[in-house]
Design a binder for these strands. Structure first.
Lengths: 158, 158
DNA sequence: CTCTAATGGTTGCATCATTAAACTAGATTG
DNA sequence: CAATCTAGTTTAATGATGCAACCATTAGAG
């Protein structure tokens, strides 16, 4: 992570997410993990990143509770990296990234894969945002409200 | 030109999106732009990044068709940075990032803002993924299929 | 018309993250 | 018990990032 400007203490939840998984490799590691990749060498081969970086990233993801290490599973005495619920919770973010690419990429014909639902094998719908009473919302239909101040007196940026 | 390992030529749409907006500042700049920030100095004050970095990021976003510059609008002879449709298309990604933070952050009480729908002022629903016939899908209910080879050519806007 | 402040950048330099590659060391295979 | 696989650590070179200082333009005051 190149930055010294950490957003941990920022009140913006987007910044906080980016602080956790907003670097180039973490998202791809989680993507791989969702596909089923679980071993150090597998991640390294599939993503082609340097091993020292992979070490650091995996450890960071484990520290953050996004991945967990399991002692073994397929016979060998090595360990596996498995997604936690928090890690699986990244799925919608990845879907959103994918769909943005599908919709706006300049060369969509280069996109190699399609996300389908397993049961029917058909492409999934586009993610949509709804109000509590079920109206579809675009960016312009939303606003940011200050969180009702709880007991915390923590600082927060607008 | 953010990194040496570029994913431009990668077939994974997630990698392609990350290649375009996956750096720490771009997402936050788009977030600000969605809120209404449009001036160089405004971005700089609100995000607190160095001006040279801001220059590079804004130019990159303009080059990618995410932002566009407008000559003026509020009297002053300077330019504004406005979102294109491609830029506004990032909204669901930001919502997904926000909601991940809201759901899994270790100190959710530090989150300062809530995304509400303008009309009712109530929090929005969680983004959900649906199959074409309307069933909600989790990560495990989906699979990746190879894109139907070449013949397809370009996909239209739909 | 000059002085000054604000806006919108550009240029240089130091730092730190990233990379590839070499090296370690235990596990597994043969 | 030699070769190879796994999961790292260490190292040096590279270059992207961040900070500060420096230009250029515009606006306002006098």
């Amino acid at each position: 992570m190149v930055k010294r400007t950490s957003f941990e203490r920022d009140g913006c939840p987007i910044a906080r997410s980016l602080d956790a998984i907003g670097d180039w490799w973490s998202m791809l590691l989680i993507r791989e993990a969702l596909i089923g990749t679980s071993r150090f060498s597998e991640f390294q081969k599939r993503l082609g990143l340097a091993k020292n970086i992979l070490t650091v990233r995996l450890r960071a993801l484990v520290d953050q509770g996004i991945l967990k290490t399991a002692p073994a599973s397929d016979g060998s005495a090595y360990q596996e990296y498995l997604l936690t619920p928090k890690g699986r919770g990244v799925f919608p973010i990845l879907v959103a990234l994918r769909q943005w690419s599908e919709e706006f990429d300049e060369r969509p014909e280069e996109i190699a894969t399609i996300l389908v639902d397993k049961e029917k094998g058909k492409p999934v719908r586009k993610l949509e945002l709804y109000s509590q009473d079920g109206r579809p919302l675009s960016a312009g239909d939303t606003a940011l409200k200050r969180r009702p101040a709880g007991k915390q007196g923590k600082r927060a940026t607008a």
